[in-house]
Design a protein around this nucleic acid. Sequence first.
DNA 1: CTCCACTGGGTACGTTGTACGCGGTCATGG
DNA 2: CCATGACCGCGTACAACGTACCCAGTGGAG
Lengths: 255, 255
Amino acid sequence: MTDAEYVNIWMRPERPAYGPKPAYSRAQITDAAIRIADAEGLEAATMRRIAAEIGAGAMSLYRYVPSRDDLIELITDRLQGEIDLEGMPSGDWRADLTRYADGVRAMWLRHPWIATVHRALPSYGPNQLLVIERVMGALDAHVSIDENFGLMALLTGYVESAVREEIGWAEEVRRSGLSEPEWMARSAPRVEQLMKSGEYPIFTKIVVQARRPHQSRDEQFRHGLERVLDCIAAALPQAAEPPAPHRKRRKDRDD
Amino acid sequence: MTDAEYVNIWMRPERPAYGPKPAYSRAQITDAAIRIADAEGLEAATMRRIAAEIGAGAMSLYRYVPSRDDLIELITDRLQGEIDLEGMPSGDWRADLTRYADGVRAMWLRHPWIATVHRALPSYGPNQLLVIERVMGALDAHVSIDENFGLMALLTGYVESAVREEIGWAEEVRRSGLSEPEWMARSAPRVEQLMKSGEYPIFTKIVVQARRPHQSRDEQFRHGLERVLDCIAAALPQAAEPPAPHRKRRKDRDD
DNA sequence: CTCCACTGGGTACGTTGTACGCGGTCATGG
DNA sequence: CCATGACCGCGTACAACGTACCCAGTGGAG
């Protein structure tokens, strides 16, 4: 079969040479899958369910997509496309990277279930490539490609782990099928037990602190992000200072 | 049923009050699962397969573990236990965090398949708690718990994303069932196509650069890690300088 | 007009996690 | 010392999954 020739989804043309006109499209299928995942989690977006969503038979999807894994590839690339990269690189790398980081976070918060799909390798999707070009383009003039790669890893590493933690909690609650206070009530005994044992002072500190309100999520994220950007700035040569006169440095730590 | 009372694995006692002596144990089951996953990937570690590995019937496992998800919880905590944290915190936070980062990386490389399990929430496993106590303990004297949390997110974010990339490639190849050169050959057309289009200069740069040997994996990781540690150092008050006279700062960038 | 690569989709298979119930075992209360 | 019942290992069974295979219909190319 000719299908096995393609390893990569993006090499397989959506439209074949000729034949009857297809009733659906990859975009339509991908959108339906995202809609379901947003509402009920990624595990609810089964092939049958997606097919039903667009009014197709279960097996019809395989005319458009070789496998569910490939569909998920399509989905993640589509989500990357939601990140606004208009006008990047702008010349102000710090502004660009901030906008990118905020965009990624916003997208993840809109679709928390992507946290469960492990991005293994770059799959060469068009939107992913666009991200590479635009975002790595921000530092391209200042550092070697290897260095750029390392700095990007630092940035995306921070963003992903920060957002993953932000998400993880809510997702766990949802997956368990319990309501939020119910979940809290269930794990309370364990927390209590751990605190009472006296063997976990740091853990106890975290729990106690977490009970009183501190920074908002947004502030927390921004605070950490500024730190990462400072770190990147330190790795750049002097000439890389952004042109804007009002550039933000790390604010005085009087919090 | 009393089972549903527990949300958390760690609250469920392994040994019941009385009855016939069990033939197996959680540790044995967990070890078997890890052994299979190491050899054939996590998806090969099905309940039946694990049971067969220890010579038990398929359903016997459920006498020890409420569900597969909980078993995976057990597994990840056990893997955390592989990280050597002896003598931490030692007073030299930079040495401690370096040792921790190296330990995490080594563990992930030993068990690449954990990259596919999304750690959502802290599940209060004993080894995970130990990591929190020891590693966050390294900075506890110097910064607030909130700040500490942020810095840890930075560190683990870097480590995870760096190692994830190191792993991802090999895992992808394994999962696809193709040999390495075969996989390369299959994706070559797409890469070629992208490069020839001329629309992806940064991507092209990466590919071209990647073909010539640069730093070793170890060096790359260490290089990035030093950067992250410098970043952490910058966020610490002056008093947090480690006692050792031979401390490493970022080396001159003459590479 | 004829051909055949394509279409949507029904049926069916293998594999998964796991609910349920069986007959046997053994610490405990009388 | 014996009866009780909570535990044991485990065989059977089921629902849900991804998807291989097959079918009758369709419409552009020769």
